[in-house]
Design a protein around this nucleic acid. Structure first.
Length: 553
RNA sequence: GGCCAGUUGGUGAAGUGGCUUAACACACUGCCCUUUCACGGCAGCAUUCACGGAUUCGAAUUCCGUACUGGUCACCA
């Protein structure tokens, strides 16, 4: 009995060889230096911001070098899979202007290196495993979950390293006859990789972010094929897929760093050259309870999901800017100097990436987003708010549709100037910012409208002003009039005059403006009053003053 | 516990032996501008790079040790 017999017993239907596949998936015909990257999520229907970061880096790396970026569906864990996961991933990516060159879902396939769905690559994996068995580098393991658990407990008790290695690798010592006999007896088994390393020996690994790291050699006989569905584990799929798909750069989270020895051992067993690795830092968050940094969590942190940014209505480019700043902190500066270029043109450098965990700072994102929105044209703002509201605020959407001109006008207040206002952080905050201009919201609820204000305004004075209010062409004219009005009512026409001798006046013109603003907008701050008054007109002004007065009692 | 990594201000960080009296951005504070808020302008905000020791004429930057933090140790990726 030989390894060959064992291999034939386990994989009787596998007739292709590794060489066959190498021929089917030849070296990619790309220019020198072109990078082949991939985004390889498991289809759980949830995109974590850390995964998104790696996808963005993958994409930039590929586009930057005229390489290829492909999407691979890692669906070997059938228990966690959700429907249409790939479509939804493609959708999210496209929201951010990221388009994989190669991908596959339902009946659509693009690219020559597929299938891009792991569960459809079973035969390929089996071919590689069969080879490993034939050369004596893989074996069936019949240990039950309970046995494995026992081994671990004993190791912990003896203060030994945990795992399936050395003398603990019981099934490694089985003879081929025993193995064949057990298989024939129908005992379930996994296939394990026969490791070749010595844990006490180190090798140097060059990570593109972290630089040279000394790691122990791999002596763990890890499972490479699962017993129930005969699909490979991550480690083995990574080897086969990234080899055959000719991936040059693997971008993944730092949590993978500790499995690098396994991957290197695996590549060595086949005599393949491993890809370059870019282990990106984890995205962290300060834990409220402990005050320590911790990995941003899917369960606890809403901002861990890319869905959050869509719901809040952050413009995709603002999110990209924030993400790119984590990738390379000089991104913002570069972007400022190259406003005409896209993020894919950014010369991302793994070396410059911080090697410690990064915080995704929501405050910073707000700032980036505010700045970005302030540069948009009024129509762009209108369109964006409209499409956001369509999904997340139907009544607001209706209103915007009903009054497009008025809305666009409102969005344009203090926009077309050198330094535009920065009132809008994201689309979901727009309504609150401008609600006072819509009667539908303003007259809804007195308490709510004036909740910010505590001081009582001089209604009589405002009524007097409303009487003489007229719509002027220019702001200067308008302001001259209100100055006169101030003087007539014993208010100083400028704050300076008032400051010189406050006893001479009841106040100054600025105070009248402030009162006006409070009553008209219900807020302590608002854009230019002149323009607001223009929008609501004298009638609107009177209505608002009366509304305010009524609610005072 | 083993292995690996990280530790620069309120925050994110630049920085790889002298050009650093530590860049930039966010936040914060003050002043100025202004009809208000915002925007903008100016100024302030780490005598110091977790701690201890070593190498060196010279260290945030190299080495050793300590502490703390994180990751990992699944038939999950």
């Amino acid at each position: 009995m030989t390894n060959h017999d064992l291999a034939e017993l386990i994989f009787p239907n596998i007739t292709k060889t590794i060489a066959d596949y190498e021929e089917m998936y030849p070296k990619r015909d790309l220019a020198e230096g072109a990078k082949v990257t991939r985004y390889a999520p498991s289809p759980t229907g949830f995109m974590h911001i850390g995964n998104f970061l790696s996808a963005v880096i993958d994409y930039v790396l590929a586009k930057n070098s005229e390489g290829v970026f492909f999407l691979r569906n890692e669906d070997t864990d059938k228990a966690r899979e959700v429907e249409n996961a790939v479509e939804s991933i493609m959708k999210i990516l496209s929201d951010y202007d990221i388009y994989p060159d190669e991908y596959e879902y339902s009946n659509t396939i693009k690219g020559e290196y597929g299938p891009y769905i792991q569960s459809e690559r079973k035969e390929i994996y089996h071919t590689f495993i069969k080879h490993l068995i034939e050369i004596g580098r893989a074996y069936p393991c019949f240990c039950s979950k309970e046995t494995l658990e026992d081994i671990r407990k004993n190791q912990e008790l003896d203060k030994e390293r945990t795992g399936y290695y050395g003398d603990y690798a019981f099934c490694r010592q089985l003879t081929i006859e025993e193995q064949i006999q057990k298989i024939k007896a129908g005992i379930p088994y996994v296939i394990r990789f026969k490791s070749s390393g010595d844990f006490n020996k180190k090798f140097v690994f060059d990570d593109l972010v972290k630089g040279k790291i000394e790691l122990p050699e791999n002596d763990q006989d890890i499972p490479i094929m699962k017993s129930d569905n005969l699909l490979p584990t991550y480690h083995f799929a990574h080897l086969v897929d990234d080899y055959l798909m000719r991936t040059t750069h693997v971008v993944r989270g730092e949590e993978w760093l500790s499995s690098v020895p396994i991957h290197i051992d695996l590549f060595k067993a086949f005599g393949f050259k491993p890809p370059k690795y870019i282990h990106i830092p984890l995205i962290l968050k300060k834990d409220e309870e402990t005050g320590n940094a911790r990995k941003i969590s899917k369960r606890k942190d809403k901002e861990a999901s890319m869905k959050y940014y869509e719901e809040k209505g952050y413009p995709p480019l603002a999110v990209i800017e924030a993400i790119m700043t984590i990738a390379n902190s000089n991104y913002e500066e570069w972007h400022q100097n190259h406003l005409d270029l896209k993020f894919t043109d950014f010369p991302f450098s793994p070396k410059k990436m911080s090697s410690s965990g990064a915080y995704f700072d929501l405050e910073k994102l707000d700032n980036i987003s505010k700045n970005y929105i302030s540069t948009l044209k009024k129509e762009e703002v209108y369109d964006s708010v409209l499409s956001w509201a369509k999904k997340y605020d139907p009544s607001f959407h209706e209103l915007l549709l009903k009054e497009p001109l008025r809305s666009v006008y409102i969005f344009n207040i203090e926009r077309e100037q050198k330094k535009p206002r920065k009132d809008f952080v994201n689309w979901s905050s727009v309504k609150e910012q401008i609600a006072y201009l819509y009667d539908e919201y303003f007259f809804l609820d007195w308490e709510k409208t004036y909740q910010e204000l505590t001081e009582k305004e001089d209604v009589q004075l405002l009524k007097e002003y409303a009487k003489i209010y007229q719509e002027f062409e220019t702001e200067d004219e308008w302001f001259t009039q209100i100055k006169h009005f101030a003087e007539e009512n014993n208010y100083a026409p400028s704050p300076k005059m008032y400051k010189e001798d406050p006893t001479l006046y009841k106040g100054h013109v600025g105070m009248i403006c402030e009162s006006l603003r409070h009553v008209v907008t219900g807020r302590k701050e608002s854009p230019n009053l002149f323009q607001i008054l223009k929008i609501i007109g004298q009638k609107g002004l009177l209505q608002r003053i009366e509304f305010y007065e009524k609610g005072l009692k």
